[in-house]
C-alpha cells in the first residue's frame, strides 16, 4: 500500500466520520441530560431529506441546511414532548421517530419528485462544495506534507470543519460553563437540580434542542455534501453507529472524536477494499461493517474499562413524595 492510498483512506475516514461525529455529539448532549435518544437515525434521515429537497427546489444549499435542521428539530420536539412533558418511554418514542422518518421521507419524496422516493441530483450552489485552504495548491507537490495538507486537511466542506470544531466547543460547554454543569447534573440527579431552584424541564428541552440542531447538520451533510441529493434510507444505520460510538466514548466529547474517527476509518476501509487478505484469513467486508457493533458489545461487557451511563438516563423526572 503506497503513501497516497493511505492518505486517501484517511481522507475518506474524515468525510465518513463527520456524520457519525455530529450525531454522536448530538446524542451526547441529549443523554448527558438524561434523555436517551435512539431516534438519532430518524432525525438524520428527516434532515437529509428536507435539506436535499429544499436545496434542490431553491437552489440554495444554506436554505436547504436550515430546512434540514428544522425537520430534525421538529422530531426532537416530538421526542421532548413525549419523554419530558408527558414522561413517556424514551426508547419507544425514539423508535417511533425512526419509523416515522423512514416512511415519511420516501413517501413525500415520491410525491414531490416522482423519482422513486429520492430527490433529483443537486449540484452547484445547491450543494456544499469543498473549501480549498490557503496555499493548498502551492504546497501540493511538496512530498509528504503536500498530500497531507492538500488531500487530508484542505478541500472539505464547511460542515466538516464545523463538526471538528464542535468537539472542543462541546467539551468547553459541558465542563466550563454554568449550563454544562446544570446539564450534567440533570442527567445524574434531576432532583438535585430541581431543589436547587433550576427547571429540569427547561434544561432537558434545551439539551434535546441542541441534539436536534446537531443531527440536522449531520443529515444535511449526508444529502448536500457527502452525496448529491437524498436517496431512500441514506443514513444506513449511522445513527445507531453514532450511539455505539457514544457508549464507546463513555459520553465524553474527546473520546467521541476518537471513537467516530475509528468507526469512520472502518467504514473507509470497508468501502475501499472488498475483502481484506491477512495472509492466513480473509476478512469479509461484512465483518468490517459489523466491527463497530462488536467493539461496542465488548465495551459494554466491561472488558475495556467501564462505560457508566448518566444515572438518571431514560427516566422521566417525577417529583417524589
Amino acid at each position: 500500500m503506497d503513501f497516497i492510498t493511505i492518505v486517501q483512506i484517511l481522507d475518506s475516514t474524515i468525510r465518513l466520520a463527520v456524520p457519525l461525529l455530529l450525531a454522536c455529539l448530538a446524542g451526547l448532549f441529549s443523554e448527558r441530560a438524561g434523555i436517551f435518544d435512539i431516534g438519532l437515525e430518524g432525525k438524520m434521515l428527516a434532515a437529509a431529506f428536507m435539506s436535499g429537497a429544499v436545496a434542490y427546489t431553491t437552489g440554495q444549499v444554506w436554505i436547504g441546511l436550515l430546512a434540514g435542521i428544522g425537520a430534525s428539530l421538529l422530531l426532537s420536539g416530538i421526542h421532548g414532548l413525549a419523554s419530558i412533558t408527558f414522561r413517556g418511554n424514551q426508547l419507544i418514542s425514539g423508535v417511533a421517530i425512526n419509523f416515522l422518518a423512514a416512511g415519511l421521507s420516501v413517501v413525500i419524496a415520491q410525491d414531490w419528485f416522482g423519482q422513486g422516493g429520492r430527490t433529483p441530483n443537486i449540484s452547484g450552489d445547491a450543494r456544499f462544495n469543498g473549501i480549498t485552504l490557503p496555499g493548498a495548491d502551492a504546497i501540493e507537490s511538496t512530498p509528504f506534507i503536500g498530500p497531507i495538507y492538500e488531500e487530508l486537511l484542505s478541500g472539505h466542506t464547511i460542515i466538516v470543519y464545523i463538526a471538528f470544531l464542535t468537539v472542543p466547543l462541546t467539551w468547553w460547554i459541558l465542563f466550563k460553563t454554568r449550563f454544562g454543569l446544570r446539564l450534567r447534573a440533570v442527567g445524574e440527579n434531576p432532583a438535585a437540580v430541581d431543589t436547587a431552584g433550576v427547571s429540569v424541564v427547561g434544561l432537558r428541552y434545551a439539551a434535546v434542542g441542541i441534539c436536534g440542531i446537531l443531527t440536522g447538520l449531520a443529515g444535511a451533510y449526508l444529502a448536500t455534501a457527502l452525496q448529491a441529493g437524498f436517496v431512500k434510507d441514506m443514513t444506513a444505520g449511522r445513527g445507531f453507529i453514532a450511539l455505539a460510538a457514544l457508549i464507546f466514548a463513555k459520553w465524553r466529547p474527546w473520546y467521541a472524536l476518537s471513537a467516530c474517527l475509528l468507526f469512520g476509518f472502518l467504514q473507509a476501509v470497508a468501502l475501499r477494499f472488498q475483502n481484506i487478505d491477512l495472509g492466513l484469513v480473509e476478512l469479509p467486508v461484512q465483518f468490517m461493517d459489523a466491527l463497530p457493533y462488536i467493539l461496542t458489545v465488548i465495551i459494554l461487557a466491561g472488558f475495556v474499562g467501564k462505560a457508566i451511563p448518566p444515572r438518571a438516563g431514560g427516566q422521566p423526572y417525577v417529583k417524589e413524595r
Binding site: R182, R184, N189, A192, V193, T195, A196, G197, V198
Partner: peptide, 18 residues
C-alpha cells in the same frame, strides 16, 4: 440527599447558585 453523586463537593454547592 439531593446531591449529584459523581460531582465534587464544590460543584454540588455551586449548582444552581452560579
Amino acid at each position: 440527599f439531593k446531591l449529584v453523586q459523581n460531582f465534587t463537593v464544590l460543584e454540588n454547592v455551586v449548582l444552581g447558585a452560579e
